[in-house]
């Protein structure tokens, strides 16, 4: 699935400086919903989307180390500028959706994005 499809399915906002054209060329191979970065570091494969309600700099760092290419913050949470700056520096796409974590994962799964 392309990241632009994720954006459309979740009616998401893009917080980083990535255009829709850019999102249309980013492939998302798998997704993971987690608030525990320890689990993300232990189990997630690369080139995926992380959906989370956790919001601090270590979420961005975790994604960077794991080669995760995009994060979607759920439940209408908005990242602070320092998170957005670090994500832009590491070319990580930050999205945000009003959907809760469970619903977000369900919608993406229903549309064919499996873990």
């Amino acid at each position: 699935m392309k990241l632009i499809e994720v954006k459309n399915i979740l009616n998401a906002t893009v917080f980083t400086n990535h255009s829709d054209d850019y999102l249309a060329n980013v492939e998302v191979n798998q997704a993971c919903g987690a608030d525990l970065m320890s689990d993300v570091l232990a189990y997630v494969k690369d080139k995926g989307l992380l959906l989370t309600g956790l919001m601090n700099l270590q979420v961005i760092r975790t994604a960077e180390m794991m080669d995760i290419n995009s994060i979607c913050f759920v439940r209408g949470k908005k990242p602070s500028q320092d998170l957005i700056d670090l994500a832009n520096d590491t070319n990580l796409v930050l999205l945000g959706t009003e959907n809760p974590l469970y619903v977000s994962c369900g919608k993406l799964y229903n549309n064919g994005l499996i873990c």
């Binding site: 270590q58 960077e64 180390m65 080669d67």
Partner: peptide, 30 residues
């Protein structure tokens, strides 16, 4: 705690510049 990860990030960049295999870089970074 929130500043942790700077060293790992720096090493990841150095290894990328040295054209180390991405799978190896990922192991080292994590």
């Amino acid at each position: 705690f929130l500043a942790a990860g700077k060293a790992s990030s720096a090493v990841k960049k150095v290894l990328s510049q040295l054209s180390v295999n991405p799978a190896i870089i990922r192991k080292v970074a994590i």
